[in-house]
Design a protein around this nucleic acid. Structure first.
Lengths: 201, 201
DNA sequence: GAAGTTTCGGAACTCATGGTTCCGAATGAT
DNA sequence: ATCATTCGGAACCATGAGTTCCGAAACTTC
């Protein structure tokens, strides 16, 4: 709690770095982003950037995560409605960053153990908590006899949307319709559970 | 058909480049791969590499795609069995490359229009044809009244597996079980189609 | 065979950029 | 007043992608 000796960090510098990074990401794309350009745009020395972030990749990660809200949506009354809300949150998160940023960051996450930990502990964990909560609600309502594996349901929600956007590169206009079908289909699959087969156990 | 004038390319050089790239990818990872190292390992000049590939990324793409078989599996008798076979092919493709290679290549694909075209025209197209064929078989059998959108089914198959491996980074031992549940669940969803709602239309 | 063209491995080179270090000035705690 | 840490700015270093040139080899054409 004690303030460390020395000149304190200027909080506005953090914001300026993140804003400059997001601007340049949107203007020139992920691969074209240079640290010098971010420093210049932010009106900041490169040292100030590296005092805050270990690598360029960590800087970008922080800038992108900065304005990404991942709150669990309120109870919508049914599993189907809850899942629809969750898909909407996922679609928003993945659609928000400029083109190329999500794939670029994913590659960085798989190239550095520290980034992997940060990714798993923020974005993925928040989404997982969200999915778990929604499944628990359904169990509470009696819609589900047992709670399915949250990891499996998470993969079934996040995966198809990610694939639509970044693997198959289908038309984005059709994404909302697909996401809606995904949510209702998954709800139907989970609730139509027969005694003979417990899916995603 | 006429042989161009000049010394012809040595076919063994292509193989040596691809083999060296795959070796180094496996040994040191995607981000650590340098073109000089590939040339050195292959016993080849850098010029020979750049005579064949426009960029380092294109070289890696070619090396990885080289030994990746994506044949449509034979008719297994039912939609559920066919989908299980397709998921198996997808799991194999995504599990084969060394860690970090798939995310790295995906970032490259989103950074270069030429790579995007190559990716869509080879890997994705082969998988899509596979999915379409399997759905057509099911229609022919009478299991499906109408053929669902192949893009949607493709996303529902590829996405969750990709998410499991590269987004959620769940234990790989549990992947086969999850993939099996995915295939049977999707088959059930598609065939249990009610008149009221045609999913993935 | 001689000439011309393209390949080969190898080395030298250019250039962009990530990351570090140093500067003098500013800002705070002790 | 002193000390530690910050600031913007600039110089600096190391790495690696991509280009160019070399002499030699392989092939077509004349």
């Amino acid at each position: 709690m004690t303030q460390p000796v020395g000149r304190p960090r200027d909080g506005r510098v953090d914001g300026a770095i993140a804003a400059a990074a997001r601007e340049l990401l949107a203007e020139h794309g992920y691969a074209q982003l240079t640290v010098d350009a971010v420093a210049s745009r932010a009106g900041v020395g490169k040292a100030a950037i590296y005092r805050r972030h270990a690598t360029k990749q960590a800087m970008i990660f922080a800038a992108v995560m900065h304005d990404l809200e991942l709150a669990t949506p309120p109870d919508a009354g049914s599993l189907a409605a809850d899942l629809a809300a969750v898909t909407h949150v996922i679609v928003s998160s993945l659609s928000a960053p400029p083109p190329g940023v999500v794939p670029g960051l994913l590659a960085d996450v798989h190239a550095d153990a520290g980034m992997a930990e940060a990714f798993a502990g923020t974005f993925i964990k928040a989404e997982r908590d969200c999915v778990t909560e929604v499944l628990d609600r359904a169990v509470g309502r009696g819609e589900l006899a047992r709670r399915p594996d949250p990891a499996a349901v998470h993969a079934m929600l996040l995966g198809p949307i990610f694939a639509w956007l970044f693997l198959l590169v289908e038309e984005p206009e059709r994404l909302p319709g697909f996401a809606a079908d995904l949510a209702t289909g998954l709800a139907r699959l989970l609730t139509s559970d027969t005694a003979a087969h417990q899916p995603f156990g």
